[in-house]
């Protein structure tokens, strides 16, 4: 039974279509990435999942049941635009938000202290929210979505605005939560984050779904034909017939091989020429490359293929 299931969901604001016929489902215990550039409809989709807005058509199911407010007690939601009561003290705020989600004050306080320690913000506990840095506030809000130990965690751009250290801290936390069996959905426009974390993804562009499925399936659909080489010396091996295209950044080359070509032959050729190889890596295409390829293809065929792409 999928934890979240969207079927042919559509949402329009005035003349702008925010989400056009979006369908996907999230399996329990998985990490799901909702991907897309800014303004592609990620936030609109998420808002419909938690009933802040209502789809114009289509259905949203949570935990296998049609959406109802009672189900929200089992969901933790971090909105994209963070908001906390500025004048409230951190701990009061966390306890209040925990109580709203059905915890008693003592439990909320205990869990909040535990989380503050884990996310390294214990010194901020007695301060007012407005005195804290943006990153701190974000961590507090992050904690507030987890206090009631939700089965489904929905986070809209959870890592935006965080420094790398804190971003990694939150990512690790999410990975831990998934290990505990929680289902996590997060949206981002940073493909590299998704690539590291997610089991399943859904890629939307211009309010249309262009790609969805498990990360492994998607990648296996694409040939392993990317080669990264760090080298010194003669660069003429880059004209090898196996190479479809190459970008040489001077000692660091990103190569795309022809279909069916063998990377091994290229390595041999490079060594034969006398280049010193310090790194040679054969890779799958990155999500970013897949995305760019899909979007370009999509725009080109938009007129003919919109309907089909949606079900890709």
């Amino acid at each position: 039974m999928p934890i979240v299931e969207l079927q042919h969901v559509r949402k329009a604001y005035d003349t702008k279509i925010a989400v056009a016929d979006l369908s996907f489902s999230i399996e329990p215990g998985s990490m799901f990435g909702l991907l897309g550039p800014n303004g592609s409809g990620k936030t609109s989709s998420i808002r419909m999942m938690i009933g802040i807005t209502v789809p114009d058509s289509g259905t949203v199911k949570l935990f296998g049941q049609p959406f109802s407010r009672d189900l929200l007690k089992r969901v933790g939601y971090l909105p994209e635009e963070r908001g906390l009561y500025k004048k409230m003290k951190v701990m009061d705020q966390l306890i209040f938000l925990g109580q709203l989600r059905g915890l008693d004050a003592a439990t909320a306080s205990k869990r909040a202290h535990m989380w503050c320690e884990r996310l390294e913000i214990t010194p901020a506990i007695d301060k007012k929210t407005e005195e804290l840095s943006k990153g701190m506030q974000q961590k507090i809000q992050f904690i507030s979505t987890l206090l009631h130990e939700p089965e489904l965690i929905i986070m809209d751009e959870p890592f935006s605005g965080l420094d790398p250290v804190n971003a990694v801290l939150l990512m690790d936390t999410l990975v831990d939560l998934r290990k505990q069996g929680r289902t996590i959905l997060f949206s981002t426009h940073r493909m590299d984050q998704v690539e590291k974390l997610c089991d399943n993804i859904c890629l939307i562009h211009n309010s249309h779904l262009i790609l969805s499925g498990s990360m492994r399936d998607i990648k296996s659909r694409y040939p392993v034909n990317r080669v990264l080489i760090n080298f010194t010396g003669d660069a003429s091996f880059l004209n090898h017939p196996a190479i479809h295209s190459a970008k040489n950044y001077g000692g660091h080359a990103e190569i795309r091989l022809n279909e069916g070509a063998d990377a091994q032959a290229l390595l041999a050729a490079a060594i034969a020429i006398g280049a010193r190889i310090t790194r040679f890596e054969v890779m799958e295409p990155t999500l970013e490359e897949i995305f760019i390829e899909k979007v370009t293809a999509n725009t080109a065929n938009a007129a003919i293929e919109t309907g089909e792409n949606v079900h890709a």
Binding site: I52, L72, V75, E81, R82, G83, L84, Y85
Partner: peptide, 16 residues
């Protein structure tokens, strides 16, 4: 104030 500080979105995801 709740609208400008965007707290409402957290609130609306839990209460009516």
């Amino acid at each position: 104030e709740e609208k400008t500080s965007r707290v409402f979105e957290v609130m609306l995801s839990t209460i009516k």
